[in-house]
Amino acid sequence: MTREAMECGNVVRVGVAGVGIMGERHARVLSELPGVVLSGIYDTDRRRAEAVAAAYGGTPYSDLEPFLASASAISIAAPTFAHADLALAALDRGLHILVEKPICGSVADARRVVSRSAETPDQIVMVGHIERFNPAVAELRRHLRGRKALSATLRRMSQWTERCLDTDVVHDLMIHDIDLLVDLFGDRVQLVDAVGSTLRGSTTDHAIAQFNVDGGPTVTLIASRVAERKARSIEVRTPDAWICADLIGHSLSKSYLSVLDANGIAWPLEHETYGGSEFFPVPRAEPLRLELEHFINCVRGVERPLVDALGGFRALAYAASISDIIERKNNSPNRSGAAVSTAAF
């Protein structure tokens, strides 16, 4: 059966390239999706490929060519340095691809993938910025609809571990929130400044970046992997309320703001009670499952990627600019960061 016939029949053969912790999760979810056949598991470590294939199905491969030939689409969860070569090889063979964030290990490689994907627009290129599929983010979008955001703070904190020590906290963690910044407030943004420090590893462990959104809020991003506890949150100040989303606890709260009348009585700007807070339930769902379902729907032509190659490139380019500002500041403490806008990308 040809790839076209399989897709027309709503059967999508998907392979997973790279089966570390994240890649194994991809294999698990794909093996459970209706209308999806887990066609192959590729890893340069043959024994690892065999172990994951034994658990979730698919044929194990340590040779890339037969792996690509077995699939109509692939999910790339390999180490970041391998993303570009895997993506380009898959595109050259007519496959649809989902590539985990960041899209590539360098802006130059990401530009190559964007350029190549533009040559064959019918091939899906989706970048796995998984927080787009977090139910708490979806609930926050709903509450921001029709409201003017004045300021926002996005925090992404983790305790120290030995993972991802070859990349800085900006490319490891903050890049999630760079993408959410564009998702929530639009892509007309300007990077104003950034600071960071190296506390435990050999790269930046703690970073803060500030953006201005044209016609929108000032946004502060804070990312750390040397925090006391894990936290993922978004706080947005609007004229009438503080809206706070907990991306780990899957909850959302809204604290109403009040004004004083001539008698000194506090009246809320929006609510039937005097100030106070409301808490809104957020449905439980696995973001990775939602992301992979979306990818399969894109392959079937039902949807378009929420984050395409250009969107992934934009997030990576901002991350690179933040890291560059931090490095220059730390090497020359008296030098301030330069503003960077979307026009630069």
Rank of each mutant, 00 (worst) to 15 (best):
I234S: 01
E272C: 07
N263T: 07
V282P: 00
D261F: 12
N263S: 14
E303Q: 13
V236I: 08
E235V: 09
E291S: 12
H250P: 00
D308E: 02
A231S: 11
E235I: 04
I322P: 00
P283L: 06
F279P: 00
E235C: 05
Y256N: 02
P239F: 06
D240H: 07
V236P: 00
H271T: 12
A317G: 01
L257T: 08
G264L: 12
G264N: 09
E291N: 10
P268V: 11
I234K: 09
F313R: 02
V236K: 08
V259T: 14
D261T: 03
I265T: 12
A285E: 10
S277N: 08
A317N: 04
V307A: 07
E272R: 12
P268I: 04
L310Q: 14
R314L: 14
L306P: 00
L292N: 01
G249W: 13
A266V: 07
V259D: 14
P281R: 10
S321G: 06
A231T: 07
L247D: 00
A241K: 03
H271D: 15
S251W: 09
F280Q: 00
L316Q: 03
Y318W: 13
V307I: 14
L306Y: 11
R304V: 10
R237I: 03
A241E: 10
V259W: 15
G249Y: 08
F295D: 01
V236L: 06
I265M: 11
L292E: 04
L306S: 06
E303V: 03
L252R: 01
L257K: 13
L290R: 15
